[in-house]
Amino acid sequence: MVGIAEPAAAAAAEDPMLPRRGRVRARKRELDGVVTLEIVPEAEFSAASAGQFNMLGLPGIGEIPISLSSDPAQGDGLVHTVRAVGPVSAALSRLTPGDTVWLRGPFGVGWPLAELAGRDVVVVSGGLGLAPLRPVLHRLLAERTRYGQIVLLHGARSPTEILYRREIAAWRRRLDIDIAITLDHAGADWRGHVGVVTHLIPQAAFDPHHATALVCGPEVMMRFAIAALGAAGLAASAIFLSLERNMQCAIGLCGHCQFGPFFVCRDGPVFRYDKVAPWLSVKEI
Protein backbone atom coordinates (compact mmCIF):
# COMPACT_ATOMS: atom_id res chain seq x y z
CA MET A 1 0.00 0.00 0.00
CA VAL A 2 1.07 3.55 -0.54
CA GLY A 3 3.59 5.07 1.84
CA ILE A 4 3.16 5.42 5.63
CA ALA A 5 4.46 2.48 7.63
CA GLU A 6 7.91 1.21 8.53
CA PRO A 7 9.15 -2.33 9.03
CA ALA A 8 7.38 -4.00 11.93
CA ALA A 9 10.56 -5.03 13.72
CA ALA A 10 11.81 -1.46 14.05
CA ALA A 11 8.46 -0.35 15.41
CA ALA A 12 8.35 -3.16 17.97
CA ALA A 13 11.80 -2.31 19.29
CA GLU A 14 10.50 0.98 20.57
CA ASP A 15 7.12 -0.22 21.82
CA PRO A 16 5.98 2.71 23.97
CA MET A 17 3.67 0.50 26.03
CA LEU A 18 6.37 -1.87 27.28
CA PRO A 19 7.29 -1.06 30.90
CA ARG A 20 10.76 -1.33 32.41
CA ARG A 21 11.71 -2.80 35.75
CA GLY A 22 12.46 -0.67 38.77
CA ARG A 23 13.13 -1.53 42.37
CA VAL A 24 11.82 0.23 45.45
CA ARG A 25 14.79 1.57 47.40
CA ALA A 26 12.91 3.40 50.12
CA ARG A 27 9.37 3.83 51.35
CA LYS A 28 8.26 6.60 53.64
CA ARG A 29 4.83 6.87 55.18
CA GLU A 30 3.69 10.47 54.77
CA LEU A 31 0.05 10.54 55.93
CA ASP A 32 -2.75 8.06 56.44
CA GLY A 33 -2.91 6.25 53.09
CA VAL A 34 -0.07 8.29 51.57
CA VAL A 35 3.46 6.99 51.02
CA THR A 36 6.49 8.24 49.16
CA LEU A 37 8.41 5.64 47.18
CA GLU A 38 11.95 6.03 45.93
CA ILE A 39 12.37 3.79 42.91
CA VAL A 40 15.59 2.93 41.12
CA PRO A 41 15.21 1.92 37.48
CA GLU A 42 17.27 -1.16 36.60
CA ALA A 43 18.29 0.11 33.21
CA GLU A 44 18.88 3.61 31.95
CA PHE A 45 15.76 5.73 32.25
CA SER A 46 15.37 9.17 30.68
CA ALA A 47 15.72 12.03 33.12
CA ALA A 48 12.44 13.67 34.04
CA SER A 49 11.84 17.31 34.79
CA ALA A 50 9.71 18.72 37.60
CA GLY A 51 6.02 18.44 36.78
CA GLN A 52 6.39 15.43 34.52
CA PHE A 53 5.03 12.02 35.49
CA ASN A 54 5.81 8.34 35.16
CA MET A 55 3.42 5.45 34.74
CA LEU A 56 3.88 3.14 37.72
CA GLY A 57 2.54 -0.35 37.19
CA LEU A 58 2.12 -3.72 38.84
CA PRO A 59 1.41 -6.51 36.33
CA GLY A 60 -2.00 -8.05 36.78
CA ILE A 61 -3.26 -5.00 38.64
CA GLY A 62 -2.64 -2.04 36.38
CA GLU A 63 -0.74 1.15 35.80
CA ILE A 64 -1.34 4.74 36.92
CA PRO A 65 0.26 8.14 36.31
CA ILE A 66 2.16 9.57 39.28
CA SER A 67 4.01 12.88 39.26
CA LEU A 68 7.63 13.11 40.10
CA SER A 69 7.90 14.52 43.62
CA SER A 70 11.57 15.25 44.10
CA ASP A 71 14.21 17.15 42.19
CA PRO A 72 15.53 14.85 39.45
CA ALA A 73 18.93 16.52 39.87
CA GLN A 74 19.20 15.14 43.41
CA GLY A 75 19.98 11.44 43.29
CA ASP A 76 19.36 8.64 40.84
CA GLY A 77 16.03 7.50 42.28
CA LEU A 78 12.58 8.39 41.02
CA VAL A 79 10.54 9.74 43.93
CA HIS A 80 6.77 9.41 43.78
CA THR A 81 4.17 10.23 46.42
CA VAL A 82 1.11 8.00 46.12
CA ARG A 83 -2.26 8.16 47.84
CA ALA A 84 -4.08 4.83 48.07
CA VAL A 85 -7.45 5.53 46.46
CA GLY A 86 -7.84 2.74 43.90
CA PRO A 87 -6.58 -0.79 43.32
CA VAL A 88 -3.29 0.21 41.71
CA SER A 89 -2.43 3.04 44.09
CA ALA A 90 -3.35 0.83 47.06
CA ALA A 91 -1.04 -1.93 45.81
CA LEU A 92 1.76 0.58 45.12
CA SER A 93 1.37 1.93 48.68
CA ARG A 94 1.98 -1.55 50.07
CA LEU A 95 5.33 -1.96 48.29
CA THR A 96 8.40 -2.22 50.50
CA PRO A 97 12.11 -1.80 49.77
CA GLY A 98 13.37 -4.45 47.36
CA ASP A 99 10.00 -4.90 45.64
CA THR A 100 9.69 -4.63 41.87
CA VAL A 101 7.63 -1.93 40.22
CA TRP A 102 7.26 -1.39 36.47
CA LEU A 103 7.89 1.99 34.91
CA ARG A 104 7.16 3.91 31.75
CA GLY A 105 8.10 7.50 31.29
CA PRO A 106 8.80 10.25 31.84
CA PHE A 107 5.79 11.82 30.17
CA GLY A 108 4.30 15.23 29.63
CA VAL A 109 5.26 18.85 29.95
CA GLY A 110 6.59 20.03 33.32
CA TRP A 111 6.82 23.32 35.17
CA PRO A 112 8.55 26.22 33.36
CA LEU A 113 11.68 26.24 35.55
CA ALA A 114 13.77 28.12 33.01
CA GLU A 115 11.28 30.99 32.94
CA LEU A 116 11.40 31.52 36.71
CA ALA A 117 14.92 32.97 36.93
CA GLY A 118 14.87 36.50 38.31
CA ARG A 119 11.18 36.36 39.17
CA ASP A 120 9.13 36.03 42.31
CA VAL A 121 7.63 32.56 42.49
CA VAL A 122 4.29 31.88 44.14
CA VAL A 123 3.55 28.20 44.71
CA VAL A 124 -0.09 27.49 45.54
CA SER A 125 -1.01 23.92 46.43
CA GLY A 126 -3.86 21.98 47.91
CA GLY A 127 -3.59 18.57 49.55
CA LEU A 128 -1.49 16.15 47.48
CA GLY A 129 -1.07 18.92 44.90
CA LEU A 130 2.10 19.79 46.77
CA ALA A 131 3.74 16.57 45.52
CA PRO A 132 4.35 17.65 41.89
CA LEU A 133 5.48 21.08 43.16
CA ARG A 134 8.01 19.69 45.63
CA PRO A 135 10.70 19.24 42.96
CA VAL A 136 10.23 22.89 41.99
CA LEU A 137 10.76 23.99 45.60
CA HIS A 138 13.87 21.80 45.82
CA ARG A 139 15.27 23.43 42.73
CA LEU A 140 14.39 26.99 43.77
CA LEU A 141 15.94 26.56 47.18
CA ALA A 142 19.04 24.85 45.76
CA GLU A 143 19.65 27.89 43.54
CA ARG A 144 18.06 30.41 45.88
CA THR A 145 19.90 33.51 44.64
CA ARG A 146 18.57 33.10 41.10
CA TYR A 147 15.03 34.01 42.16
CA GLY A 148 13.20 36.86 43.85
CA GLN A 149 10.64 36.23 46.57
CA ILE A 150 9.58 32.62 47.01
CA VAL A 151 6.17 32.03 48.50
CA LEU A 152 4.52 28.70 49.33
CA LEU A 153 0.80 28.82 50.08
CA HIS A 154 -0.51 25.40 50.99
CA GLY A 155 -3.94 24.21 52.00
CA ALA A 156 -4.67 20.94 53.78
CA ARG A 157 -7.72 19.39 55.36
CA SER A 158 -6.44 19.11 58.94
CA PRO A 159 -3.18 19.21 60.92
CA THR A 160 -2.62 15.49 60.32
CA GLU A 161 -3.07 15.97 56.56
CA ILE A 162 -0.15 18.34 55.98
CA LEU A 163 2.06 16.64 53.41
CA TYR A 164 5.88 16.82 53.83
CA ARG A 165 5.33 18.42 57.24
CA ARG A 166 8.90 18.06 58.53
CA GLU A 167 10.34 19.31 55.26
CA ILE A 168 8.07 22.37 55.38
CA ALA A 169 9.28 23.02 58.94
CA ALA A 170 12.88 22.84 57.70
CA TRP A 171 12.13 25.29 54.86
CA ARG A 172 10.58 27.66 57.38
CA ARG A 173 13.82 27.76 59.34
CA ARG A 174 15.65 29.02 56.23
CA LEU A 175 13.93 32.43 56.44
CA ASP A 176 14.32 32.95 52.65
CA ILE A 177 10.95 31.51 51.73
CA ASP A 178 7.55 32.72 52.90
CA ILE A 179 5.33 29.84 53.87
CA ALA A 180 1.69 29.99 54.88
CA ILE A 181 -0.39 26.92 55.63
CA THR A 182 -4.14 26.97 55.97
CA LEU A 183 -6.44 24.17 57.11
CA ASP A 184 -10.05 23.37 56.38
CA HIS A 185 -10.52 22.11 59.93
CA ALA A 186 -8.31 22.65 62.96
CA GLY A 187 -8.48 22.32 66.71
CA ALA A 188 -7.66 24.91 69.34
CA ASP A 189 -3.98 23.93 69.23
CA TRP A 190 -3.59 25.17 65.62
CA ARG A 191 -2.23 28.69 65.54
CA GLY A 192 -2.13 29.10 61.77
CA HIS A 193 -4.74 30.01 59.19
CA VAL A 194 -8.09 28.31 58.81
CA GLY A 195 -9.99 28.51 55.54
CA VAL A 196 -9.34 28.03 51.84
CA VAL A 197 -5.88 28.55 50.41
CA THR A 198 -7.06 31.31 48.09
CA HIS A 199 -7.51 33.59 51.13
CA LEU A 200 -3.75 33.54 51.66
CA ILE A 201 -3.04 35.07 48.26
CA PRO A 202 -3.90 38.73 49.02
CA GLN A 203 -1.63 38.67 52.08
CA ALA A 204 1.35 37.08 50.37
CA ALA A 205 4.48 39.14 49.73
CA PHE A 206 5.28 39.17 46.02
CA ASP A 207 5.40 41.66 43.18
CA PRO A 208 2.53 40.69 40.87
CA HIS A 209 4.25 42.28 37.88
CA HIS A 210 7.37 40.17 38.34
CA ALA A 211 5.87 36.97 39.72
CA THR A 212 5.00 33.60 38.28
CA ALA A 213 2.47 31.40 40.06
CA LEU A 214 2.50 27.60 39.97
CA VAL A 215 -0.77 26.02 41.07
CA CYS A 216 -1.68 22.41 41.78
CA GLY A 217 -4.56 20.95 43.70
CA PRO A 218 -8.20 19.97 43.25
CA GLU A 219 -9.60 21.62 40.12
CA VAL A 220 -12.10 23.75 42.01
CA MET A 221 -9.33 25.03 44.29
CA MET A 222 -7.22 25.88 41.23
CA ARG A 223 -10.07 27.88 39.68
CA PHE A 224 -10.45 29.98 42.82
CA ALA A 225 -6.69 30.32 43.24
CA ILE A 226 -6.35 31.54 39.66
CA ALA A 227 -9.11 34.10 40.23
CA ALA A 228 -7.37 35.35 43.39
CA LEU A 229 -4.00 35.51 41.63
CA GLY A 230 -5.61 37.49 38.83
CA ALA A 231 -7.17 39.84 41.38
CA ALA A 232 -3.73 40.26 42.95
CA GLY A 233 -2.45 41.50 39.60
CA LEU A 234 -0.86 38.47 37.97
CA ALA A 235 -1.26 38.17 34.22
CA ALA A 236 -2.96 35.01 32.93
CA SER A 237 0.28 34.20 31.12
CA ALA A 238 2.16 34.20 34.45
CA ILE A 239 0.03 31.47 36.00
CA PHE A 240 0.73 27.76 35.44
CA LEU A 241 -1.40 24.89 36.64
CA SER A 242 -1.18 21.10 36.59
CA LEU A 243 -4.34 19.32 35.49
CA GLU A 244 -5.51 15.85 36.41
CA ARG A 245 -7.42 13.65 33.98
CA ASN A 246 -7.92 9.92 33.47
CA MET A 247 -4.75 8.67 31.75
CA GLN A 248 -4.19 5.13 30.56
CA CYS A 249 -1.55 5.19 27.83
CA ALA A 250 0.34 8.43 28.61
CA ILE A 251 1.25 8.85 24.91
CA GLY A 252 -1.85 10.55 23.52
CA LEU A 253 -3.41 7.44 21.96
CA CYS A 254 -6.03 6.18 24.42
CA GLY A 255 -8.06 9.39 24.34
CA HIS A 256 -9.08 9.44 28.00
CA CYS A 257 -7.24 12.58 29.11
CA GLN A 258 -8.71 14.92 26.52
CA PHE A 259 -9.35 18.42 27.77
CA GLY A 260 -10.72 20.49 24.92
CA PRO A 261 -8.16 20.16 22.13
CA PHE A 262 -5.44 18.96 24.50
CA PHE A 263 -4.22 15.56 25.53
CA VAL A 264 -3.28 16.26 29.15
CA CYS A 265 -0.71 13.43 29.12
CA ARG A 266 1.16 14.88 26.18
CA ASP A 267 0.36 18.61 26.06
CA GLY A 268 0.24 18.90 29.89
CA PRO A 269 -0.16 18.11 32.69
CA VAL A 270 1.31 21.58 33.27
CA PHE A 271 -0.41 24.28 31.23
CA ARG A 272 -0.03 28.03 31.08
CA TYR A 273 -3.37 29.33 32.29
CA ASP A 274 -4.13 31.63 29.35
CA LYS A 275 -3.81 28.64 26.97
CA VAL A 276 -6.52 26.63 28.76
CA ALA A 277 -8.71 29.37 30.24
CA PRO A 278 -11.60 28.97 27.77
CA TRP A 279 -12.00 25.29 28.66
CA LEU A 280 -11.28 25.57 32.36
CA SER A 281 -14.38 27.69 32.80
CA VAL A 282 -16.72 25.11 31.24
CA LYS A 283 -18.20 22.48 33.50
CA GLU A 284 -17.58 18.81 32.57
CA ILE A 285 -15.37 19.64 29.60
Binding site: M1, I4, A5, E6, P7, A8, A11, A12, E14, D15, P16, I251, G252, L253, R266
Partner: peptide, 12 residues
Protein backbone atom coordinates in the same frame (compact mmCIF):
# COMPACT_ATOMS: atom_id res chain seq x y z
CA UNK B 1 5.57 11.36 18.49
CA UNK B 2 4.28 8.02 19.78
CA UNK B 3 3.62 5.43 17.09
CA UNK B 4 1.51 2.35 17.64
CA UNK B 5 3.60 -0.63 16.49
CA UNK B 6 0.56 -2.90 16.11
CA UNK B 7 -1.28 -0.51 13.82
CA UNK B 8 1.96 0.17 11.95
CA UNK B 9 2.54 -3.53 11.29
CA UNK B 10 -0.99 -4.17 10.04
CA UNK B 11 -0.92 -1.05 7.94
CA UNK B 12 2.49 -1.73 6.39
Amino acid sequence: AARDPHYAARRA
